[in-house]
Amino acid sequence: METMNDDKPRVILEEYKVVQNLPRGSTVFTEQFNSKNFKKNFRIVIIRKENYEMEFDMIGIHPFLANTFRRLMLSDVPTMAIEKVHIHNNTSIIQDEVLAHRLGLIPLRADPRLFEFKTSSNEANTEHNSLEFELKIKCSVNKEANKKDSSRVEDMYKNNNVYSKHIKWLPTASQKENLQDSNVGPIDPDILIAKMRPGHEMDMKLFAVKGCGRDHAKFSPVATAFYRLLPDIKIIKEVEGEAAYRLQKCFSPGVITIRNEPSGKKIAVVNDARYDTSSRNVFRYDDLKNCVVMSKIQDHFIFTIESVGALQPDVIFKEAVRILRDKCTSLLDELNLS
């Protein structure tokens, strides 16, 4: 496929591989980084921000930087998670280690910025580096008379399911004053931890500490954080009639629309390529595959941050930026020292 001539750096999605397209002018890829230019060209556009999910565009940045933010969000932004479990009693069928592992993966509502890292695992728990919880629950036979005839487990037994809402926060020292009750605890109340039957019992103390995703995925503040490049689709040959509808089907809904020409022809035109999934299904049709050029703009990143709930997605991003800054300054400090 012939290269496209424009100013933007892009990759072209061919049938069997992705090829680089060389733009005429200079781009972030070719020119040396300078902050003035960067400031001029760089833009962030927030598209969508829901409770735990956020989508924004980052334009005019080199992929290494965009990727750095993604990586930092995944594994360097700290959160609180249950790390140590003191099991006093566990007569349920779930094994102690597995139970502890499950507890660790429960996302906790606690602002990690208010806590310090534990320097070593032996360090004593203080109000500044840990949170203490309690999970104490016992399953018993439901004695309520009106539900005697039911054979549904939830009617027959009490506490047969242990949910994350059963985890109780035990504030230590001044935590009670400094933190609000609503700010600490499991984010989702309905995470199933274990199933029990009468006679089963759990009694344990859970200790949450601050950690980062590199240690264990449970500390990661995001379910996932990723970006994709902005797709750009160009129809280079007119597609009309039945083929146009076929072309429309090859892309995600809304990408291609059919325009009714005054002449009565129905031709396919690109409406909005942003939400195309790069499925490249045009290549199934021999007659269509030469009509379209699919490409992606290489310095336009569509970020999606799916927060686990401890931090707002925008906060996570800001944290990531801060961490990068800290890392840079500490590197510079180190360099200056020597």
Binding site: T277, S278, S279, R280
Partner: peptide
Amino acid sequence: LVKHGFNYQGKDFFYSGITGEPLEAY
């Protein structure tokens, strides 16, 4: 797969996690 916006061959567009750039192959 096509119905749900995936490539009919099951080949997806991937980005390298290390460099952050698109992979050449699907």
